[in-house]
Amino acid sequence: MSADTDPALRQGGTTPWRERLPLPAREQMTDEQRAAAQALIDGPRKGVFGPFLPLLRAPQLLDRVAALGETLRFKGSLEARIRELAICAASRHVGNQFEWHMHAPLAIQAGVSAAAIDLLRQGARPQPLATDEATAYDACHELLHTNGLSDPTYQRAVEQFGEPAVVELVTLVGYFVMVSWLMNVAHTPAQRSAGAPLPSWPA
């Protein structure tokens, strides 16, 4: 189902609704755009979607954003549970439907409680959470709301994960806020997968 037929998938609330920066037709792409798109298709993402639709307007930037995202998602040191919970926290904070629909099911598959993810969707503190999940969530929440970490929160995170992983966690949150902002501006719609267990919130 597409955003044209399911308003719950739409990003942005303008009326009439439209996607501002959709995928260009292949024959309208420049050589650089086609090369950037093919690199995404050949890489671990296997397609052009989400933030890479608007980023095709700036293919050199797309290449660098894609490389950072691949490092964080596919080559990082954080456990999948922690990574996906952090992505959900970031996407919910900035109200991005695409990342939520993609990563909420992945968080549950990785072992985060479905009840916790649904509470996060509703804007409440997620629970129940394992100790390391709670430490990561508290760090993400504080970072998103205060643009930094207090000494107690930072110390808990370092004791739980170590300094390199805390750097990775903060970078992960920043990356997903960045691409979510881009999709919010571009009105990039979500793609509801057949197995997505959770509804959206109003765009």
Rank of each mutant, 00 (worst) to 15 (best):
E32V: 07
Y175P: 01
L40E: 13
L119M: 10
F74C: 04
A136K: 00
G50F: 07
G13D: 14
E142N: 04
D6N: 11
T146W: 09
R121N: 04
P128L: 02
A157Q: 03
E99V: 10
V179D: 06
G76N: 02
T71W: 12
Q122P: 03
L182Q: 10
S193F: 12
R81V: 03
T188N: 00
E99W: 01
T30V: 10
L9D: 01
V112C: 07
Q127V: 08
E32C: 09
R81E: 13
R20Y: 09
A116W: 00
A165Q: 15
G76S: 05
D118T: 06
T30C: 08
L62A: 06
G95S: 09
L172D: 00
G50M: 08
K46V: 11
P126V: 01
T71L: 12
H101K: 11
I117K: 04
R192N: 02
E70N: 14
D42S: 13
P126D: 03
M1F: 08
P51M: 12
T131G: 10
A114I: 01
P126T: 04
G195F: 06
E168P: 03
G174D: 04
R73S: 00
P59E: 10
S200T: 15
G162N: 11
N184G: 08
E84N: 14
T131I: 09
D4M: 08
V94H: 12
A89H: 03
V177L: 12
R83T: 05
L40G: 05
W17V: 02
A130L: 13
Q127S: 15
E19N: 05
A35W: 13
A115E: 15
V179R: 06
P164K: 11
N96G: 12
A3P: 05
A134I: 01
Q33K: 13
G195V: 05
A134M: 11
L182I: 14
V112F: 06
R125W: 13
W17R: 05
P16A: 06
L169T: 02
S2L: 08
V112T: 11
D132S: 10
T131P: 10
E163N: 14
V170L: 09
A203G: 15
E133K: 05
L143F: 15
P24H: 02
T146G: 07
G174M: 06
Q11A: 04
G69H: 04
A130G: 07
R81S: 10
H141T: 07
R121V: 02
G47A: 10
S200Y: 08
S113E: 13
T135Q: 04
L182W: 08
E84R: 01
S150K: 13
G123A: 07
E19S: 03
